[in-house]
């Protein structure tokens, strides 16, 4: 029995590409993600004792648009996303690392236990950075060696979502972890679907993960649970790190 009253929080980071290619209905749909999450938590409000949310957008630079928070707090203002510039994965990964590090420290200092954070990363294009640059920024964010304790101990579970021109092979490299007890997955816009439907589907995957975390989060569990294949919303297909693309 767990008799402590200390909550164990699961931080969700929603990271959204706001490069110019995301214009129109894609951006509009992306702007509906957090309101949908907020509604879902308002319907199951004790979830607020378990989850925290942050929104980061990125283009040539990355910005924290919603600092990690209890989404039902009175003061919360959901950001509205606007477009600017290119698609720098590097900027997103670097900002994520500094945010996660300081947020987790803060939550712990406030007396909470913290599950490994979850990142939902959505992009519709290829990175404008050099491959080696984003790969090394991603390694900085996700690599940790348990034995030598080098790297980033608070590394997140990373779940990439791709729509339109996103390159499956690039996004596939962002699935983390790829093995172990709970491998993460990647979600792509289905071939017969459109980007807006896929982004709406991403909101559903996020919400179902949030709800599942309230149902089954127990000690020792790493937190995030992704919907299984049968429960995928329309518009999305799910892939593991080993799937091939032909």
């Amino acid at each position: 029995m767990d008799t402590s009253e200390q909550g164990k929080l699961l931080p969700f980071y929603v990271v959204i590409d706001v490069s110019y290619s995301m214009s129109g209905v894609k951006l509009d749909t992306a702007n509906q993600i957090m309101p949908a999450v907020l509604d879902a938590v308002a319907k199951a409000p004790i979830l607020a004792d378990k989850v925290r949310f942050s929104v980061i957008d990125f283009s040539d630079d990355a910005r924290v648009r919603l600092p990690l928070c209890d989404i039902l707090d009175d003061g919360v203002q959901l950001p509205s996303l606007t477009l600017r510039g290119g698609t720098s994965f590097v900027s997103a990964f670097r900002l994520l690392r500094t945010e996660i590090e300081s947020n987790v420290k803060q939550l712990k200092a406030d007396g909470f236990l913290v599950h490994r954070p979850a990142v939902f990363f959505i992009s519709d294009g290829v990175p404008t950075d050099q491959d080696s640059a984003w790969q090394s920024a991603f390694a900085d964010l996700t690599t940790f060696d348990k034995v030598s304790r080098t790297g980033f101990s608070m590394y997140p579970n990373f779940v990439p979502f791709g729509v339109d021109d996103a390159d499956p092979r690039t996004l596939q490299q962002l699935i983390h972890p790829t093995g172990g007890g709970k491998p993460m997955r990647m979600f792509l816009q289905s071939k017969d679907s459109d980007a807006a439907a896929a982004i709406a589907g991403m909101a559903e995957v996020l919400i179902s993960s949030v709800l599942a975390s309230g149902e089954s989060m127990t000690r020792g569990d790493s937190g995030i649970i992704l919907p299984s294949g049968d429960d995928l919303p329309p518009g999305l297909s799910s892939y593991t790190a080993d799937d091939d693309f032909v």
């Binding site: 309101p35 949908a36 907020l38 509604d39 308002a42 319907k43 199951a44 409000p45 004790i46």
Partner: peptide, 16 residues
């Protein structure tokens, strides 16, 4: 009404 403005009818569960 939910925060988004959508109308909602649901059971008054004890969690509230």
């Amino acid at each position: 009404y939910l925060p988004s403005g959508a109308a909602d009818r649901s059971l008054c569960e004890f969690q509230h």
